[in-house]
Amino acid sequence: MNDDAMRDEWYPVGLFSQLDRGGRETTLMGAPIKVALDANGAAKVTGEDGRVLPVSVRYGHIWSSLGEPRKPVFPIPEADQPGRRFVDVGVVRVRCSPLRAVENFLDIAHFPFVHTDILGSEPHTEVEDYKVEIREEEDEVWATQVKFYQPQAAKSASGGITTEYMYRVPAPTCSVLYKTCPPRPGEWDVIALFVQPLAEDLCDVWPWMALFDDETPLTDLIHFQQTIFLQDRSILENQIPRLLPLDPGMEIPTRADLTSVAYRRWLKRHNYTYGAQLVAQ
């Protein structure tokens, strides 16, 4: 499997707030790495051979790479917007391809069945047409004008509303979603999924949020997001195959899946195939 293209990307490898001098030992694309604070309190990532790896600290997380990233960690402009609360949700390990974890995050059609009475409920199962594009300048996948009826869209939402979403894939194992923000019409809450590929069929998922919500206690916000993600986890660990099939024919998309179709096309175009299955088996 050619993983060169993905080697040069940034990946989350830990929460900066939880890092100490002792550090944490983890894995990135099959390679053991150590993430620790150096004597000056800066994050340091080293490979097994003692090789010092690239480091960046963004959005509460430490980012690193086995290769040589050509760009900084992708921008999330809302991370610098005043008035937002930033929420480190913490890590959850999932026995699935990192690409499957991202694809599930881009999907709304499962809400009524997997996040029942929270993000969706029968009979409100219809996915209306939305717009999908690969933005060439930023080299990102974008889905906009995504709408879905939700019984309880966020911790701050009371009662059902039609929520609007935008989805963004700025890196092969990361996605950022923007959703209607109940307390502040006109603004968007930001929920990101940063996925650390441990192996092609195993990943650590680090959700992160930047919200306009001064009311809800932090722990409630964390529990809400953990609830949603743990409902997904039992699905992700039971998909066959574990790897994401990139060849058409193995799985059947519909109009509701256009974001995933664009994501798979974009992965293929860039040869982002770590965690992908290329030949139908």
């Binding site: 499962h110 199962t125 799985e251």
Partner: peptide
């Protein structure tokens, strides 16, 4: 065949079996 989810995790209504992932 949609997304590879195991159908044995699904639910039976009437005379049909539904996938737990997207129904």
């Amino acid at each position: 065949p949609h997304r590879g989810m195991r159908l044995s995790h699904g639910f039976v209504r009437g005379e049909a079996l539904s996938c737990i992932y997207h129904g």
